[in-house]
Design a binder for these strands. Structure first.
Lengths: 344, 344
DNA sequence: TTGTACGCGTTATCAC
DNA sequence: GTGATAACGCGTACAA
């Protein structure tokens, strides 16, 4: 199917002038007579002429497009980040090409190739859960295309990064539980090959050891989905290992845990306090409303995009790589807060 | 910033052969000697050569790209649709360019221009809440670019469409409430300039009149967000108009209502049964879990994209426009279902 | 078997 | 003031 769109040539033919004259007239070039300009602009408007950005990109050797590789759009956090990305990109006259890895390494590699084939000027990446090898990404850099990681970064790869202060936020979240008088706090952790998974766990453990908590109290389990959390709570109960508080790697996990806890006839927060991470809509919808760390997804998107555009526009300068930290805010809600009575 | 990517010319220069030979070698053209092919392919691999899709698009006058205009990515339903779109598009070798209208008419007009400027071969659209005029979309069609509407269609515009059986599903949802013995059922409606808003309300009213319900029982209020629903429940209470059941235009609205109802010390579903629409994750996270109509967002995306690709690949044929209806499934959960006792 | 010429839409650089 | 030409990267009919 050929896009039957009007070109500069069409206008030139209609007016019996050359394409270059049309081009200049449209750009309000001083050399062109105002009469010609009028004629050209009128016809262009009537024919709804639009410059062909593809051709422009070819000529100018820059596509004014940036690429994004994310695990899944349907995750609220990522959709927020994308909104932030688009916001900044569009205002700067850039188009955004979004690719989903669906948490698959192979797919992520493909995404990288798709984007470079489209000659995007820069790429924003958040790693899939499977990704352990980063060659497909360093290849991009070798091609001279700037890369900015957000949230799920690649350790060891030299590049700009935007992250949450995961460890610190996890530390605070755990301290909050300790302050509530909780003794046996467990952690439902994310995949440990991701830095965010490790960092959050690390912060959790630090808080416990800082509290001089008895060894063995830091029960960590890898569970990062609603379903896994639901099952894990049941398993812990059967093993007689139910904690009195739970810090989860993300909100959906926390909510799965809450559902499971309640299904067992126990109460949140009275019997088990629960805290999530990466505050999205879920936290306020949950019952009870969920204490969580607000990761400011939209902001993360805007910051990352600005870094990328800076990098693109200063490609010559060999500026050092930057890591920006967006501070997560612990928002305390009912799922972890005892209003009056104490637990026993 | 110039994408310093390797071109066919670079390879040709290195090997002291002409660019066309390189081109043919890369395509495994029979005319080329296997020795030359080997040389070319080896060097191409070493240099990580990738064909410039932009240049190809220009030459072949087809960009292998489709555009999407949606209100907001952060809506779970829309993010599901996008996943479906990407799934089909990528398998067909198409790239997807996503634009958000942010529910603004002006922005939607801009999106349309951006996409045509990029010479996308077809466009998928779901209207913003503000949109009442459709010229920016018919302009696209006049340009010979196929258009497919999904979910939020433009009445009067001749184009392919994919929709939910909104009226019927709303009818069923309301009937379900009637079957539960509810007498005073209210509707929290969406914007009435959108067809889906009107249809869902229509279905609601039909069910009531079919039940020979007393006039005035069909209380309709325009409220389509969490906050509006929350406030509206309070207002109804103050006005002494609280219903015993509530059918909401979407899930988030339903959940806002539930939160408000509970804040008033009333129970769901015992005092007020609640039903939502467009079943997303929210429905299963809500407490109690929410009865809702599953709109099958992912499927809607795949179906719409297939229609669009068909249209693109059969541009010559003047096929009649098609409307596909994806049946919504009413999924009954705790928010509307009385297990044992009856209401009084 | 390989090279040359052309065109996709656009603009910068010459020429006139 | 305007027109012709070349170039961006690629594929292909045609020539050699």
């Amino acid at each position: 199917m050929k896009t039957g769109q009007v070109t500069i040539k069409d206008i030139a033919r209609h007016l019996n002038i050359s394409p270059s004259t049309v081009s200049r007239a449209l750009q309000d070039h001083p050399d062109i007579s105002s009469e010609t300009k009028r004629l050209v602009c009128e016809l262009a408007a009537r024919l709804k002429y639009q410059p062909n950005i593809v051709a422009l990109g070819l000529k100018q050797r820059r596509t004014k497009t940036i690429g994004v590789i994310i695990p899944e759009i349907v995750h609220f956090f990522f959709s927020q980040v994308i909104s932030g990305i688009e916001d900044v990109a569009y205002k700067a006259g850039y188009t955004v090409m979004i690719c989903q890895s669906n948490e698959k390494y192979e797919r992520e590699k493909n995404n990288a190739l798709t984007l470079t084939a489209h000659r995007v000027e820069g790429i924003l990446v958040s790693l899939s859960k499977e990704t352990c090898d980063y060659e497909h990404l360093t290849d991009i850099q070798d091609n001279g295309i700037p890369l900015v990681f957000f949230d799920r970064i690649a350790p060891g790869v030299e590049a700009d990064q935007v992250i949450t202060n995961d460890r610190e936020a996890a530390y605070q979240a755990t301290c909050h539980l300790l302050e509530q008088g909780r003794k046996r706090i467990a952690h439902f952790a994310g995949p440990q090959n991701l830095v965010i998974g490790r960092e959050r766990k690390e912060g959790f453990l630090q808080a416990l050891s800082g509290a001089g908590s008895p060894s063995g109290s830091g029960l960590c389990v890898e569970a990062d989905t609603f379903d896994k959390a639901f099952r894990e709570v049941i398993r812990l109960r059967e093993a007689g290992q139910l904690p009195d508080a739970l810090f989860c790697n993300n909100d959906l996990t926390a909510i799965g845990a809450i559902k499971s806890i309640r299904a067992l006839g126990l109460r949140v927060p009275e019997d088990i306090a629960v805290v999530g991470f990466s505050d999205g809509v879920f936290a306020t919808i949950s019952e009870p409303v969920l204490t969580s760390v607000d990761q400011h997804g939209f902001t993360m998107g805007t910051v990352a995009t600005r870094m990328l555009l800076d990098r693109i526009n200063n490609a010559e300068k060999e500026l050092p790589f930057i890591t920006k930290v967006i501070k997560g805010d612990l928002i305390i809600r009912d799922s972890s807060k005892l209003s009056l009575s104490s637990t026993q």
